[in-house]
Design a protein around this nucleic acid. Structure first.
Length: 515
DNA sequence: GGACCTAGAC
């Protein structure tokens, strides 16, 4: 072990595999407490954790009876998004099951928790076995097992159990409703909605979202109107069971608008969303940006974008005023301080300020800029659209060119993390694949292609939508599917020539700003 | 007095 530590310490930047090898060594030697200690060190060092790390560490926590540490590891797992990973989750289920098995009085809560744990790692066989064994069973436990089958797409088993429920609540109905919606059973989810004895906002959102998911955008809008009529009628009738749309509803409706290219209703929904308090809501904002952008109204899309998430800028402003206070107090900033200051400038787009601070760092504080300072400056210029200046900085950097490969490694690491967090988002695969392609790593490109195919999801390419003669036309980049492609491109070319002749130059810097 | 269960945009 001493040898291992010596070798380990020589490794300047141990990667995930190196750490995992250390864990394996200690675990095989039954030094479980060392694993726990090493994990703490690894975590403090900010090392790259991966899904292979946690099963070993958790097992060691369990074997070493380190409950407190086990809980901390659990927190890290949850924070890093490894909770739903089959292997990591499996360890926790085994753990939870151990706790569960040792409990003297198992009540319905414990039974539900342990069934839910098996459902969470898609082990429906064990979940069902436990469910059948449970001495008491309330509506919540029923809902858990039903939603388990739904997540696996087994609507037959789900429906069979649902029909056997002694009493079911709104959540049970909603679960089945969205189950049919997600599995493409249009007639059935509509039928469930009509049959339900009571409805809440989840039910309505399930119906509207179900229509959108299955491409029935007009129906989604009709349903939204129906919902609004009920809300309006509430004042006069005072009827109960009336539900008010929420942000989820708005997002689904906007999504329908953008797919239909229906700018008019989209604008109306924008005003409505603002009026019920969703101005600045991130989900609603993104749906609005998407809708305006797909309908070709870039200015409005940018307006919405500018109204979103000002908190970065606020924190950045705080950072800069703190820095002034620090200087007034006679405290001496170091290289790390300036990393914070420069990235604050980046967040606020303060190019000039960033340069002044960079100069001041060198001239007033005699700090030699490190790679991270140059990185900040490149980021600052890049985000401001000043690509040439950014490249210039890179050229003049006194570092070895091989340092630049680190950025590719960073991007690779970040994307691998994103894929772990959002395995179903094909965009992450595409981005990583493009990086590999640029580097000529064709084997990795092929490997990703297979991995992406295995997820069953496909990247949806960006497109524009135009409502035309009561129908909708979608356009993709270089799209040639339309029967009148030739005349469309001729018209486009004519327009381009006309624009250029009037001195129009495409303003790509503004687009860069929007990112 | 409390615990176990319903969804999303890019």
């Amino acid at each position: 072990h001493a040898r291992a530590w010596v070798e380990f310490d020589k490794t300047a930047q141990p990667n995930g595999a190196t750490w995992n090898a250390m864990f394996r060594g200690y675990a095989q030697a039954k030094c479980h407490l060392d694993v726990v200690v090493l994990f703490a060190r690894m975590h403090r060092a900010g090392a790259s954790l991966n899904c292979f790390t946690f099963p070993m560490v958790v097992k060691s926590c369990a074997t070493a009876n380190a409950a407190k540490e086990g809980r901390q590891v659990h927190c890290v797992v949850a924070k890093r998004g490894f909770k739903s990973n089959t292997f990591v989750g499996g360890v926790f289920v085994a753990d939870a099951y151990k706790v569960f098995a040792e409990m003297r009085d198992k009540n319905v809560f414990a039974w539900t928790a342990v069934v839910a744990a098996h459902v969470a790692c898609h082990d429906m066989v064990s979940a069902r076995r436990l469910f059948d064994l449970a001495p008491q069973c309330d509506v919540v436990l029923w809902n858990v097992i039903v939603s388990g089958y739904i997540e696996l797409g087994d609507m037959v088993a789900a429906r069979e159990l649902f029909d056997r429920m002694p009493d079911c609540d709104v959540m049970s109905w909603n679960t089945v409703l969205s189950g049919y919606a997600n599995n493409g059973e249009v007639e059935l989810f509509v039928k469930v909605f009509e049959e339900m004895p009571a409805r809440n906002v989840y039910s309505w959102n399930g119906l509207i979202g179900g229509y959108v998911r299955n491409g029935l955008f007009k129906e989604a809008l009709e349903c939204f109107k129906r919902m609004l009529v009920l809300v309006e009628g509430e004042g006069k009738e005072g009827s109960d069971g009336v539900v008010v749309p929420n942000d989820y509803t708005v997002v689904a409706v906007l999504s329908a608008c953008s797919r239909l290219g229906d700018l008019e209703i989209g604008k109306w929904v924008h005003v409505y969303a603002d009026s019920i308090g969703y101005k600045g809501n991130l989900f609603v904002g993104n749906a609005l940006i998407d809708m305006y952008a797909k309908c070709g109204v870039i200015e409005k899309a940018l307006d919405v974008f500018d109204g979103l998430d000002p908190c970065h800028a606020w924190h950045a402003a705080d950072a800069l005023s703190l820095f002034e206070g620090m200087k007034r107090a006679g405290e001496r900033p170091d290289g790390v301080t300036f990393v914070g200051i420069l990235s604050a400038c980046t967040h606020m787009g303060l190019v000039r300020n960033g340069f002044l601070h960079f100069q001041s760092m060198v001239d007033d504080y005699l700090i030699v800029p490190q790679i991270e300072h140059y990185g900040c400056m490149v980021d600052l210029l890049g985000r401001a659209g000043l690509i040439n200046q950014a490249v210039d900085i890179v050229r003049k950097m006194p570092m070895e060119p091989d340092v630049m490969y680190k950025n590719v490694e960073m991007a690779e690491l970040a994307l691998q993390r994103l894929i772990e967090l959002e395995p179903n988002n094909p965009g992450n695969f595409v981005m990583l694949s493009n990086i590999y392609k640029d580097l000529g790593r064709s084997q990795d490109v092929a490997r990703l292609k297979v991995a992406m195919r295995d997820t069953g999801f496909r990247k949806v390419p960006g497109c524009s939508v135009i409502g035309c003669n009561d129908s909708v036309v979608e356009f993709y980049s270089l799209d040639e599917r339309h029967p009148e492609t030739d005349s469309i491109y001729r018209a486009l070319q004519g327009l381009t020539i006309l624009l250029r002749s009037h001195g129009y130059v495409p303003n790509l810097v503004d687009v860069a700003h929007a990112n």
